[in-house]
Design a protein around this nucleic acid. Structure first.
Lengths: 225, 225
DNA sequence: GAGTTTTTGTGATGAAACGCACAAAAGTGC
DNA sequence: GCACTTTTGTGCGTTTCATCACAAAAACTC
């Protein structure tokens, strides 16, 4: 209903709002203004109001936003009451950490199974999550209605694994490998590239020392060097 | 010559180019065109050419880019021959995985120490990286000239830890906690919010089935989410 | 070495997002 | 209930980034 066309950036901020509203609700706060949210989340208040305005007129002038109402609205909008099952492919260091990360408690996302080709891992459990061999994938996907996979395999097998996943019916991949994955255009892939993030941070530090606002990424190299 | 004003997005793509060029170089490829890079990296060739054009005229018309030259140029530009030491704060699941991740082999970034307040962890090593108590922080930072910290503590202590880090002289933070950190404006903070990434992926899947844009490697770094 | 092909670098245009600034509405105080 | 304050929702200018499209240059072909 609500969604016409929400800018991508907005969609990315909604979970942030949601999370903070949960916090406010937990401490019993009744109302919050865009300025209040802005302070806490370090997002411009106008941006926040604009974001909400895509969803409807959720606030009241001179008052702000009712925490409970807004929280409930976002919960519905983000379908936070439906549990989304996901699988994790590649039970290495990072994969294991993510299995233990427990997305479920705070967000209704549940890793229902891990997959690995290492036979010594198959059959074990990590934090109650069973580890299967890859050939059980289709079966598990069907059983738990899984459409999303977290990919934490070595880069060298990332593409082959992706092909396999797509074939098995996966529609969204959260890719932690540095590989650029090729997939049909209806498959949604988000990349989290840890080394790029680290390198970029270091690059900015080295090249633009002691500059503007934390939030501000304008890069003017005030001619030293 | 090189850096005047490089768009933030470009700076984020440079490590990508660098990594792929390394690969090309390793297999003995002499030249590459923006179209070739585009195919491999799933970035529009015009975007790639524009990115490089910020650094200078690195290609030759009718030829493309010389792999060795471009690689060397980027190596210099990204200061890939200098090792950057970083520390990791919070040796939990994720922290441990990152300690083992070995950024060093592929990129000249080295985690020289982990910190945790859990006394049972202090004094141990993970993959050869020693774990210290927080009160040794300043000492270690000074010894290894560290200015960057990876933050993998629980969200509840993220802000306090940040204050401590800033105080000790840290200038860049790669924040894996969901907390929005407050810090002086000269401190650079990049956020990697795993749950937001996962939730956003799921949101897009649920709401825009079968859409465009396989390639979305946006990550959030505070404002730049 | 003339003609054809490839490919860059960039001007121009478009698209997405940001954030200022303000009217309008609602709340607050006396 | 009147004056003042707060705060939203949004029109609009600005900024940032992506991409088209093409002249110019270099490379390739025969």
């Amino acid at each position: 209903m609500a969604d016409q066309k929400i800018p991508q950036v907005t969609a990315k901020r909604l979970p942030l709002y949601y999370r903070y509203l949960e916090k406010l609700h937990a401490i019993g706060k009744q109302r919050v203004s865009s300025a209040g949210l802005a302070d806490a989340l370090q997002i411009d208040p106008a941006t926040i109001r604009r974001d909400f305005s895509y969803l409807g007129e959720l606030g009241k002038k001179g008052y702000g936003y009712n925490v409970t109402y807004l929280l409930q609205f976002l919960r519905d909008f983000l379908k936070q009451d439906e549990v989304t099952n996901v699988v994790l492919i590649g039970v290495g260091n990072l994969g294991t950490a993510l299995l233990r990360y427990n997305f479920y408690r705070s967000h209704n996302t549940k890793i229902v199974a891990g997959f690995d080709q290492d036979v010594s891992k198959v059959g074990t459990e990590i934090d109650g999550i069973p580890i299967f061999a890859m050939d059980r994938l289709s079966e598990v996907l069907a059983l738990h209605h899984v459409e999303v996979a977290i990919l934490t395999v070595p880069a060298s097998v990332a593409q082959a694994t992706t092909n396999f996943l797509v074939n098995a019916g996966i529609r969204g991949i959260l890719n932690f490998t540095p590989a650029r994955l090729n997939a049909p255009s209806n498959i949604r892939i988000h990349h989290i590239d840890l080394t790029v993030e680290l390198q970029t941070l270091i690059y900015f530090l080295k090249n633009f020392p002691a500059e503007e606002d934390v939030n501000d990424f304008t890069l003017n190299s005030d001619g030293d060097d």
